[in-house]
């Protein structure tokens, strides 16, 4: 075990994957200079030991032009013909530039060619919301891609999961989109230095509880945990916090079992409200275990609004511990204290 940041854990997973399999390559803008901190060595300079470009060479560390559509398409073609690319698309908002390739080629090729193709490719991108980067860099677009059959969707919320899920994504023979949260880049915990793989499609029960289930996604996970602590201390409410970790495939069973036990559901996620992951999970719970519900399902999401730049305006847009705690109180029927 060693203390690792979320970002450091991603770098560690990439290094392990590059060492484990020569077919793994990293493609993306500014990966050579380690601009985003996941392709570097122990120090800041290029000469530091472990720098990816030094260690693996330019054949496998492919610095690209700013051509997202071309990059994604080429990675798809490379995956269909023997490579296992990790594509660093940096900002999640840049995925829109490559929408045709992601939706029409990456997601569809295996299916429409009757299984002749396999598409072992990982698309990493970071959601820069909550950092005053304005509307073009603050998107949380994972629900859009949940609506595209053929893509696996991952949203790690902890350093350990960032590492273990990335290893599983690279080893998957199917396309995986990983949405990382910049807000979590600096979060730290003990992470195994050994290789480990966190399976896709298995939720993590972050905290067990009996009164209410909170399903939290990405940076909403630590906020939900903070809200759960407050509720336990102030109201004696026992909150179960579940992090789905992967949205496709979604661990429906873990969520349904928990709701069947607690009878109450709050969902917190940083994406927009309409057709978000929370909407899908709400519908699924209502369809499958309606009889278990003792209270209406509550969703804490970003509003259907673009993200403003000013810190005075942006902060209110996402789920935080106060909003989540208030939703839990409403759901379990405890009045808000003055």
């Amino acid at each position: 075990m060693s203390v690792m940041s979320y970002l450091g854990a991603i770098g560690a997973a990439q290094r392990e994957a590059m060492d484990a399999d020569e077919r793994v390559i990293i493609i993306g803008e500014d990966v050579e200079a380690n601009v985003y901190g996941t392709t570097g060595g122990s120090g800041k300079s290029r000469a530091s030991e472990g720098d990816f470009t030094q260690k693996y060479g330019r054949n496998r560390i492919r610095n690209t032009p700013i051509s997202e559509e071309g990059i994604v398409g080429a990675a798809a073609g490379a995956a269909m013909t023997g490579l296992r690319p990790i594509v660093d698309l940096s900002y999640s908002s840049f995925l829109y530039m490559a929408m045709d390739q992601l939706v029409n080629q990456v997601a569809k090729n295996r299916y429409m060619f009757g299984g002749q193709a396999s598409m072992p490719v990982v698309f990493r991108s970071a959601m820069f919301y909550g950092l005053n980067t304005g509307a073009h860099h603050s998107d949380r677009p994972y629900p859009m891609f949940m609506n595209v059959p053929g893509l696996k969707i991952v949203a790690p919320a902890s350093p350990s999961d960032a590492k273990g899920l990335l290893r599983s994504a690279v080893d998957s023979d199917d396309p995986v989109l990983i949405f990382e949260a910049c807000l979590l880049w600096g979060s730290k915990e003990d992470v195994s230095e050994e290789e480990f793989w966190t399976p896709l499609g298995v939720a993590r029960t972050v905290q067990e509880g009996t009164d209410v289930t909170v399903v939290a996604i990405s940076s909403s996970v630590p906020e939900a945990l903070a809200a759960a602590r407050t509720l336990a201390e102030e109201e004696g409410v026992s909150v179960e916090v579940i992090d789905p970790r992967t949205l496709v495939p979604l661990d429906k069973e873990a969520i349904l079992k928990s709701v069947a036990k607690t009878g109450r559901l709050v969902i917190a996620e940083p994406a927009h409200r309409t057709c978000g992951a929370a909407a899908e999970i709400s519908a699924m719970v209502a369809e499958e275990v309606f009889d278990s519900l003792k209270a209406p399902i509550a969703r804490i999401t970003a509003p259907d609004m673009q993200i403003p730049f000013s810190p005075a305006l942006e902060k209110q847009m996402y789920p935080d511990r106060v909003k989540i705690a208030a939703a839990i109180r409403r759901t379990v029927g405890v009045a808000q204290r003055a």
């Binding site: 492919r62 559509e69 994604v72 398409g73 080429a74 798809a76 073609g77 490379a78 023997g82 490579l83």
Partner: peptide, 13 residues
């Protein structure tokens, strides 16, 4: 770009 990727595979491998 699918063909570009196939050419990239040839080159890298």
């Amino acid at each position: 770009p699918i063909a570009t990727g196939a050419a990239l595979s040839s080159k890298v491998l």
